[in-house]
């Protein structure tokens, strides 16, 4: 499979400004040296708890926020230095679906207008082709052309997420980033949207980056999974590697903490102490060491390197180096 996207050493640091002069007094190390690839037709999951940098990674890749350093190669071209005009062309190739279907659609626009907006921006599908295109998009996401004349408030959460997906597909993108696309939906609606995303991927050959905190949903959808903690990828591998054979103590703890809808499941739960530390002052050495049940002497002194194990399974932990 062709590599569509290659991210090398991506860093996104946000300056913290204080005082009347707005002096920079520190940085939030939101994304700190993240590297991964996305192949054509593949789904990569970015998982982790709040503040781990998964959403910032997504926004950085889309260049919706400025990146501090690192390279993002799309089809071999570094897009971190693109000028506004060149960036516009890139927008057709990469789209995003947001978590909250209530705040990501303009309440003053009809669905037709919402779907026409990206087409207008790029001058595509003019005249009669326009309404055909919109009808096609609506049908693909399981809505009907009559829905086009309505406003977002007339739809349920699940239907709104369908509209958000139709808008993301309007420009025939190659990559769609889903930022928690199903987590705001009711349980009985989630399955509808998950199945829709998988169907659309098959039909249009899309590549997905799925940002989510629900580990069961990520396992179900993704081919490969990257586990993030405090701005870094601590483990990355195929879904089988991550879920059947997790190597990093954080991944193990994360998986063991998920409540399983099976009262007979007997599992060994690894209870982590404390909360995720602040990304402003990440702990020295391995960022996870203060909460790690398998800590070694070296862990609070040196940063573990990302080590590649058999089968391209990567882990950032001294237990495996």
């Amino acid at each position: 499979m062709k590599t569509l996207l290659q991210v090398d050493g991506l860093k996104v640091h946000f300056p913290i400004k204080r005082g009347v002069l707005g002096r920079t007094v520190g940085y939030v190390y939101a994304v700190d040296d993240v590297s991964f690839t996305l192949r054509q037709g593949e789904t990569l999951g970015l998982v982790g708890e709040s503040g781990c940098g998964k959403t910032t990674t997504g926004l950085g890749v889309l260049r919706l926020i400025p990146t501090t350093s690192g390279r993002i190669l799309y089809n071999g071209q570094d897009i971190t230095r693109l000028k506004a005009q060149e960036l516009r062309r890139l927008r057709r190739e990469m789209q995003i679906v947001f978590q909250d279907p209530y705040s990501s659609l303009n309440p003053r626009m009809t669905v037709n207008q919402i779907l026409a907006d990206p087409l207008d921006t790029f001058g595509l599908y003019r005249g009669r082709e326009r309404s055909e295109r919109i009808a096609f998009l609506l049908e693909k996401v399981g809505l009907s052309p009559e829905h086009g004349r309505r406003y977002p408030h007339e739809f349920s959460g699940g239907q709104r997420q369908r509209i958000g997906i139709a808008r993301a597909l309007a420009l025939d993108p190659k990559i769609v980033i889903g930022d928690e696309p199903v987590s705001a939906l009711d349980v009985s609606i989630q399955a509808q949207i998950i199945n829709l995303l998988l169907d659309l991927q098959r039909e249009f050959g899309l590549s997905y980056i799925l940002i989510a905190h629900d580990l069961a949903v990520v396992e179900y959808i993704c081919d490969r999974v990257a586990v993030m903690y405090l701005g870094k990828i601590v483990e990355m591998g195929t879904y089988e590697q991550i879920y059947n054979d997790p190597k990093h103590p954080y991944t193990e703890a994360l998986l063991s903490a998920v409540p399983v809808p099976n009262p007979k499941a007997t599992r060994h739960r690894i209870l982590l102490q404390g909360d995720v530390p602040s990304p402003i002052h990440p702990p020295a050495g391995c960022h996870f060491h203060p909460r790690c049940p398998k800590r070694l002497d070296i862990c609070d002194k040196e940063r573990p390197p990302l080590k590649t194990l058999a089968g391209d399974h990567q882990v950032r932990c001294f237990l495996h180096s």
Binding site: Q190, L255, V258
Partner: peptide, 19 residues
Amino acid sequence: SIPKLGERSRQGRRHLEEI
């Protein structure tokens, strides 16, 4: 309709039934 943790990596992808 809910994906269950560990299910796909052990038994393969089951079709999620929709309501």
